[in-house]
Amino acid sequence: MNLSAENLSWRVHGHTLLENVSLAVASGQTFGLVGPNGSGKTTLLRLLAGLGKPKTGRVLLGGTPLARMRQRHIAQSIALVEQQAETTDRIQVRQVVALGRTPFLSALRAWAKEDDAIVDQALVDVDMAHMAGRLWHTLSGGERQRVHIARALAQQPKILLLDEPTNHLDIRHQLSILELVRQLPITVIITLHDLNQAMTCDRLGIMDGGQLVGVGKPGEVLTPTRLQQTFGVQAELLAGDNGEQVMRFYHA
């Protein structure tokens, strides 16, 4: 399923966080969002998820404006993994992941064995099945992040939005989560700080000062000029051992 934005703007207390952002992400594509801290990536991701009404513009899911859809129906197609989501409740890991099934439950559709199987598989996918009975407050930051991702996977979305999903993860789980995301047969929009990780996306959008200043294939938009203007660094492109391109950075 495709997702698009038309002329999105967002302001808080007179401060512009997004200004006239338009983009289109095709079905099945992995689209990366990169940019400095405060550039508007998280704000854009939340508007794409339907969590907030833009001051101007609109978001369309499969051609239908989100503003015309009920939140329950949006949640049946779009899952968002935010950077932080805390709770003081004494809740177990499996219960957190099971929340991903909420949009599909109703008075006419009770919890079923199918839901158990979906939750179990989501826990396996993020390597947290062995911690299914652990209490949330006993988890490390990285473990909580993997549980958030499992909850989103249990939602079985057509579009998965991930805000810095590798934050707090050790390198092994960073690689495994990114590989899992790449293999999903769905549309993915992911914000990343690591530009080498971003190089593996199908397309990239570069945010700077609340604006989308570049969109295209990673090698086309992460140019030396753009890297210096937006990130304040110089870079050279190297060939990795596996044939993939790797960037090495220097102070501008």
Rank of each mutant, 00 (worst) to 15 (best):
A117F: 03
D115G: 03
D127I: 02
D120M: 03
V93Q: 02
G141H: 04
Q121K: 06
F104T: 04
V119Y: 01
D89I: 14
S140E: 09
Q95P: 08
W136Y: 07
I118C: 07
A98H: 02
R134N: 05
F104N: 10
T102Q: 14
G133K: 05
A98C: 10
A107S: 11
V126L: 08
W136R: 03
L139I: 08
A107P: 04
G100M: 06
L105Q: 14
E114I: 11
V119L: 02
T138K: 08
K113F: 08
W136T: 00
V93C: 05
E86L: 15
L99F: 09
A85V: 11
V97P: 04
V119F: 01
L108T: 11
T138S: 13
S140W: 07
W111Y: 10
S106I: 10
W111P: 05
R90K: 15
G141P: 08
K113G: 03
H130Y: 09
T88S: 13
L108E: 11
Q121D: 11
V96E: 00
D89T: 08
L108R: 13
H137W: 11
A112R: 14
A98S: 15
F104C: 05
R101G: 00
T138E: 15
P103T: 09
P103F: 09
R94M: 05
L123N: 01
L99Y: 08
D120Q: 12
L123H: 00
T88V: 13
G133W: 05
T87Q: 05
D115S: 03
V96Y: 01
M131N: 01
Q92P: 02
D125Q: 13
I118Q: 09
L123R: 01
D120K: 07
G100A: 11
Q95A: 13
A112Y: 01
A85D: 10
Q92I: 03
R94F: 04
W136I: 02
E86P: 04
A117R: 09
S106K: 10
A129T: 00
V119T: 06
D125W: 03
I91T: 13
I91G: 08
D125S: 10
F104W: 15
A122F: 02
E114C: 02
T138L: 14
E86C: 09
M128L: 06
Q92L: 14
D127G: 12
D125H: 04
K113Q: 15
G133C: 02
R90A: 15
Q95Y: 03
R94K: 14
A85L: 14
H130V: 07
A129I: 04
A110H: 12
L139M: 07
A117Q: 13
